[in-house]
Amino acid sequence: MSPLLEIRGLSVRFDVGDATLTAVRDLSFDIAEGQCVGIVGESGAGKSQTFLAALGLLAENAKAEGSVRYRGREILNVPRRELDTLRGRRIAMVFQDPLSGLTPTLRVGRQIEEAARRHLGMNARQARAKAREMLETVRMPDAEHCLDAYPFELSGGMRQRVMIALGMICRPDLLIADEPTTALDVTIQAQILGLLAEMRRELNTSIVLITHDLAVAAGLCDRIMILYNGRLMESGTTSEVFTSPKHPYTAGLLASLPSLASDPATDLPAISGQPPDAFVTTPGCAFAERCLQVMDRCRIERPVLAAHEGRHAAACHLNTK
């Protein structure tokens, strides 16, 4: 069975004046049907750009190379009309800031109805009923009142529910959620994560969860991909990555997280240094400068990772000795 989404050799470059910024570097991985995959990395790791490229939503000055196949069909750099049959229908996206994804001057009900009419070909009455149904599905408190509200009248958590309702209206195969809870308070974050887990169980939607927060990914995801400097550093099932990380970067990230179980009397084992510059491409491993187990080889030869086989793997010479 071919995977739902197959990404091969994807690179994304931005023209910035006379320099080139590389956001995604030769990335290859699969998203299997029904899975929830966490794409984890710090700012500039390339996690958002990977999926913006896949959906043809890159900025004007960006170029994508490689291949992205949805159910075996190439979708990278294809004409907009071809993508329109997928976007919003088969693949939906939810962003960090729900306010920027909603039209400020239209009532929430209108916006959901519009999606129902456009994508599902419903008439006005059916669309109205569908909008109400969707708001109830995402457990919106007082759905009736929300239909007539403008986005600014809703709280951050409620807006995110609206975005998820909009995303789920066509029962997509794949929901890409880009930092969906980062702007929310913890108790509201818990509500939204719970909602995503429910959506997945009830509608069997595959989910890509893009996040900087390892803890958020831990509960929801089956598989985890760790990105750094535009490259895939480690890939495996959630329990593999969390309990026996193979890449020193993953191990360092996990160790540096303060948790409710860590001993507050000792210093946090921080990763020293800064993330590398996206304008520079080094011949070796991008993490070498910050790695405690760095070897001479790491600076000259780039370790490779073949993750699409689905096994637990890391792009690190320590694993290929």
């Binding site: 719970g194 995503l196 887990a197 509960g219 948790s259």
Partner: peptide, 19 residues
């Protein structure tokens, strides 16, 4: 209770009811 922990065994299902 609402803090997500870096623990793969913690499910967000039901977390929605925490508060």
């Amino acid at each position: 209770d609402a803090i997500p922990e870096a623990d793969p065994n913690q499910s967000p299902l039901g977390m929605a009811d925490a508060l």
